Computed example of a mutant assay.
Amino acid sequence: MSIINLAIVGVGKIVRDQHLPAVAANADYRLVAAASRNAQVEGVANFASIEEMLATVPSIDAVSLCMPPQYRHAAAVAALEAGKHVFLEKPPGATLSEVEDLAALAARKDVSLFASWHSRYAPAVEAARAFLAGTTITSMRVMWKEDVRQWHPGQDWIWQPGGLGVFDPGINALSIVTRILPRQVFATAATLEFPENRDAPIAASIRFTDAAGLDLEAEFDWRQVGPQSWDIIARTQAGEMVLSEGGARLSVDGRLVHGEPEQEYPSLYRRFAEIIRAGRSDVDLAPLRHVADAFMLGRRKVVEAFHD
């Protein structure tokens, strides 16, 4: 396959901000179609549904699914059944079981499925992974706090069941943690704060450990105003590691050791092309599993109503 004919489904803010520029800059792809109920992409064929798009444009090789997670499984099944490779925006689905179902279907159809975790491709993540692999970690603190009104204005789906609430950004932190730690961790306790008028949490705190007794705590909050916080701090025998700005900068004992411009979505699309050409899938469910565990273990705390 020389050029991958790509279609995008669900044309919202993340598509315009990240997907379209990344695809346009990558010679591996030709954007040929889009499907969305409420928006269109200039210069390509546009459709109201993925079913209409797949029936009308048989030349599509791959589909990027960027609608809210509650609606992604049915669209992914349609694409996979049609023999198309599928890119899943994060989180890859509303439940673990439905994503496992998609992975099994992709294997039966001999096509590639990519559960994308864009924060894993932040520029300093691999440097942090290498640093932690060479030392002993004594504790880790994850602080992912942002203003939901800034990043998700008027998006009701994130407050509905399956929308994940504060775990929509929090899962980005978990995708980094599960990449950089040398051992698997598991949740031991959690508190989830639900606004009295919403069905998804606005804040969460989770405690984790591993087989060696690691002390790990994550704090997610959507009520932060002013500067936003996307930081992972690890105390180690080699010094204090700070992975900041969502994985863009790595410092050890206050000294910057890695920092490069952000290239998350271009990296995702390079990876997608790579697995398509290799005839493989890339479906790591560890971040979503941790969210599911937090809901299973979490103590529910009702807080004041949230109004956008």
Results as ranks from 00 to 15, higher is better:
Trp159Pro: 03
Thr188Arg: 15
Asp156Pro: 14
Val111Phe: 07
Ile180Met: 07
Val177Pro: 02
Ala189Arg: 04
Ser139Pro: 01
Asp147Ala: 06
Thr178Ser: 15
Met143Ala: 10
Gly162Arg: 01
Pro169Arg: 06
Val142Pro: 13
Arg108Trp: 09
Ser139Gly: 10
Ala128Met: 01
Val125Cys: 00
Gln160Pro: 02
Ile137Pro: 00
Thr178Asp: 15
Asp147Asn: 03
Pro182Asp: 09
Arg179Glu: 08
Tyr121Glu: 00
Gly165Ala: 09
Ser112His: 05
Ile180Trp: 07
Gln155Asn: 13
Ala133Val: 04
His152Ala: 01
Val148Trp: 06
Ala130Glu: 12
Asp110Asn: 13
Phe114His: 04
Gly154Phe: 12
Arg120Gln: 11
Val177Gly: 07
Glu193Pro: 10
Gly134Gln: 12
Ser139Met: 07
Val185Ala: 15
Leu105Gly: 02
Ala187Glu: 10
Trp117Val: 05
Met140Lys: 02
Val142Thr: 14
Ser119Arg: 07
Ile137Gly: 00
Leu132Val: 09
Ala187Leu: 06
Asn172Met: 06
Asp168His: 12
Gly134Tyr: 13
Asp110Leu: 13
Leu113Arg: 13
Pro153Asp: 04
Phe131Lys: 07
Gly162Met: 06
Lys109Ala: 05
Pro153Lys: 08
Ala133Tyr: 14
Met140Cys: 11
Ile180Cys: 04
Glu146Phe: 15
Lys145Asn: 10
Ser116Tyr: 08
Thr135His: 03
Ala130Asn: 04
Phe186Tyr: 15
Glu146Thr: 15
Pro182Met: 05
Trp144Gln: 14
Arg179Tyr: 05
Ala128Tyr: 05
Ser139His: 09
Ala127Met: 00
Ala122Gln: 03
Thr135Tyr: 08
Gly165Met: 05
Gly165Val: 00
Thr135Trp: 05
